[in-house]
Simulated scan of single mutants.
Amino acid sequence: MSLAKLVPVSRLKYLTKIRDITIDDFTFRLHYRFTFSFLLIGSILLTGEQFFGKPIQCIPGKDVPKPVIESFCWIEGTFTLPKGLMKIIGFEIAAPGIEQYKEFVEEAKMEKDEVISHSYYQWVGMVLFLQALCFYVPHMLWKLWEKGRVQGIINDLNKIILKAEKKDADQKKLVAYLADNKGKNNAYAFRYFLCELLNLLNIILQMVFVNAFLGGEFASYGMDVWKFLDKDPAVRVDPMSKVFPKMTKCTFRKFGPSGDVQKYDHLCMLPLNILNEKLFIVFWFWFYVVLFFSFASVLYRVMVIGWPGSREFLLARMHNLADPEK
């Protein structure tokens, strides 16, 4: 637990750390600094709660011990029923999605009720950790390609306290280097643009993956929660209870004394989903923000590469005191 407490603090320090020299832009840092840190902190919180808390608590029956039921339901997963999401809590159902479950019986020609399986919760902490690594990979790749070139050519010019003679000399060296190597840094620029494309591709794939991981509910999760707040409490369906239910059902079967299969129906609480539902709401909105900035950044880079006039315009705007013709 001590490690879980220390790592988030170090990540917050990493987020607020001010660097003298930057080799990327704000959008790039949204991926490897902010998103990486948020996912890592979420993974640590969920993993700590899973291994050091009680991620599942089931109401035991008379013939099956509670530890057996909880272990079985945690491993095999639980479920809720969509038909129980629209009914009145306390009158028709005990909790959202908790309803009488009818299995298929061939002799009675009964159809099996539709269920929503919930077996993802064991993997959420690991999935968030792997996602965090994916957001960091383009940054690692860019650092390997960049090799400290920007820091080398700046040569302490970014320092506030610097002798005038050294400053003038280093400025002349920098200008001479840029003039002599004009047009020779295309590979350097292309690699940076490639990393920006990797960032955009990664955020798209991550959103598709999370949507598949949560059974297709993540794509509209944030908007569903937003609409839920404005609906009539008597008729609204809580999307958080549908994706991350706090109360679920679990069916345990064993052989009876005569050899017949006996079925035991249990209610199980998932306290971990209280944290899951809040984290994934934040992640939903955050992913769309990162996607917007990533797409805009790629469009900006394409414009700068494909339209030479835009480069002159940007240089002139960045250096207002200089003569635009120069």
Rank of each mutant, 00 (worst) to 15 (best):
E103V: 15
A212V: 05
E111N: 13
L141F: 09
D156S: 11
D238Q: 03
I153E: 03
D170P: 05
F135N: 10
A164F: 06
F209S: 14
K231H: 00
F213C: 04
K184E: 10
V210L: 15
G215K: 10
R236V: 05
N199K: 03
Y192S: 01
L205R: 07
A187G: 13
F218E: 03
M126R: 14
G125C: 01
G222T: 01
L197N: 13
Q131C: 13
Q171P: 04
K143W: 14
G97W: 01
K182N: 13
I116E: 07
V208Q: 04
A169Y: 05
Q122K: 15
E107W: 14
L205S: 13
D180M: 05
K231A: 11
N186H: 05
N199V: 02
G183Y: 06
L205H: 03
S117R: 15
F135P: 03
E107D: 05
E146Y: 05
A189Q: 11
W123M: 14
I161M: 10
V137P: 05
L198E: 00
Y121P: 00
H139S: 14
N199Q: 12
I153N: 08
L200R: 03
V225F: 08
S220K: 04
Q151P: 02
L205G: 06
H118Q: 02
N211E: 01
L133T: 10
K143C: 09
Y177A: 10
E111T: 06
C134D: 12
L198I: 06
G215H: 04
L144Q: 15
F193K: 07
D180V: 02
Y177C: 12
D170Y: 15
Q131F: 11
E107L: 08
E107Y: 02
K173L: 11
K167P: 00
V208W: 11
I153R: 12
K172M: 08
V124L: 06
L198W: 00
G215S: 11
E99L: 04
K159H: 05
E114I: 06
Y120F: 10
V237S: 01
G125H: 08
W145Y: 15
E114F: 09
Y192L: 03
I154C: 03
L197K: 06
A179C: 12
L205C: 09
D232R: 00
V208F: 12
G125D: 02
E165T: 11
F190N: 15
L157K: 06
G125W: 00
M223R: 15
N202E: 10
D230M: 03
D113I: 05
D170N: 15
D113P: 03
L197I: 11
N202R: 02
K184F: 12
K112Y: 09
D232S: 00
R236G: 04
G97I: 02
S220F: 04
W145P: 06
M207Q: 14
